[in-house]
Amino acid sequence: MTEGTPMRHLPYVGSGPYCYANSFAMLLGAQAPSTAVIEVTTAGPFGMQLIGGTLMFFDGYGWNPELGFDRALAALGWTSTVSKGGDADEALARLAAAARRGPVWVGPVEMGHLHHQPEMTGPIGADHFVVVLDVDDRRVLMHDPHGYPYAQVPIGDFTAAWRADTVSYGEAFTMRTDFVKTADVADADAIRSIIPAAIGYLSACPDLEMPPGSLANGEAAERTAQLIEAGAGDGMREHLIYFAIRVGARRLSDTADCLLLAGYDEAAAIAATQARLVGSMQHPMVTGDLPAAAAALRELAPTYDRLRAVLR
């Protein structure tokens, strides 16, 4: 890009860790909005959080995926039935009965127990969502949106994953069925409906009580920059390069597209800038140029207040 020439935002199309949005899109079928609209209507992309001072995500302070699901469905004009809990045998019987009626949205599950994914040998604390197609006494047949259609997973592995006892939120054996469209909602109207929630996250008003040491938005960006400069240890580098940067840049790119669609042109420009800054961290984090990654975070830090101001 020539110096001084503003970069035009281009919507991203491609792979990425969009498991719950992709799973919802499969269940909603021909009437599904884009995965971008599904993702943004959770209100997740609005902000940054450093949980307990150590675990960072490019999403709203105090947000987790489960908190956004009912919000997204309501914004889009859909409902579903949620069931969870019980013991493993009860849960599997419930899942098998539901799968006989149609595909079932399942999660969170612990990705590390899904051994059809290469290099997954045990729990890693990673949440994931899948669509279950069939269950018998030996295996679960699923569409795994991480890139594995019609994956067959042994019952024992699936049950261990679905118990989700190494995932930081949610309850064991959670699934959604009976997806029903209750209203025709334009994509732009769905995006407009979640703006108050977006402002709340950008104002650091969490939905959940946060652990001591947690930081939001600009403060989270500055502290994460310091941790990166100190070596990005204790798994931070791996978390960033394999997940957080990829999903963060993708959802911010989608946020820019959705805000533009809804008529928030100035906010869309800020989100596009955020997407470029987050995406710019991938190469330096992989190659070890930690000061460059930290510098991108410091440039990102003030954009959260700017985005909140223009959305208000």
Rank of each mutant, 00 (worst) to 15 (best):
Asp207Thr: 12
Asn217Thr: 09
Gly288Asp: 07
Pro103Gly: 05
Glu110Phe: 01
His128Tyr: 10
Val167Leu: 04
Gly170Thr: 05
Leu95Lys: 06
His143Trp: 03
Phe24Glu: 00
Ile199Val: 15
Asp254Phe: 04
Met236Ala: 15
Arg138Met: 14
Gly85Lys: 09
Ala160Gly: 08
Val185Glu: 01
Ser34Asp: 11
Ala36Gly: 14
Thr303Glu: 10
Arg8Trp: 05
Thr174His: 05
Gly68Val: 04
Arg298His: 07
Ile194Met: 14
Gly231Thr: 12
Ala198Met: 09
Phe58Arg: 00
Thr174Phe: 00
Arg8Val: 14
Tyr12Pro: 01
Glu229Phe: 02
Met7Ser: 15
Leu133Met: 13
Glu209Ile: 13
Ala160His: 04
Arg246Asn: 06
Asn64Ser: 11
Ala30Pro: 08
Ala188Asp: 14
Gly156Ile: 05
Asp137Gln: 11
Ile241Leu: 13
Asp184Met: 08
Thr303Pro: 04
Ile194Phe: 05
Cys205Thr: 15
His128Ser: 06
Val40Ile: 13
Glu222Pro: 01
Gln274Glu: 15
Gly68Ser: 09
Ala292Ile: 05
Ala75Val: 02
Ala99Glu: 02
Phe129Asp: 01
Pro17Gly: 03
Thr35Gly: 09
Arg139Leu: 15
Arg101Glu: 13
Leu27Cys: 10
Asp289Lys: 11
Arg163Met: 14
Ile245Tyr: 01
Leu240Phe: 08
Tyr18Met: 15
Gly200Met: 10
Leu141Tyr: 07
His128Pro: 04
Ala74Phe: 00
Ala295Asp: 13
Ala296Thr: 05
Ala275Asn: 12
Ala91Asp: 05
Tyr264Pro: 01
Asp157Gly: 07
Gly14Tyr: 11
Ala151Cys: 11
Asp136Leu: 07
Arg192Asn: 06
Pro108Trp: 02
Asp289Thr: 11
Phe57Ala: 03
Thr5Trp: 13
Ile124Tyr: 07
Asp178Cys: 06
Leu290Lys: 13
Leu28Thr: 06
Ile38Asn: 06
Leu261Gly: 11
Thr303Asp: 05
Met236Leu: 15
Ala151Arg: 07
Asp184Ala: 14
Val131Arg: 00
Gly288Ser: 08
Asp137Cys: 11
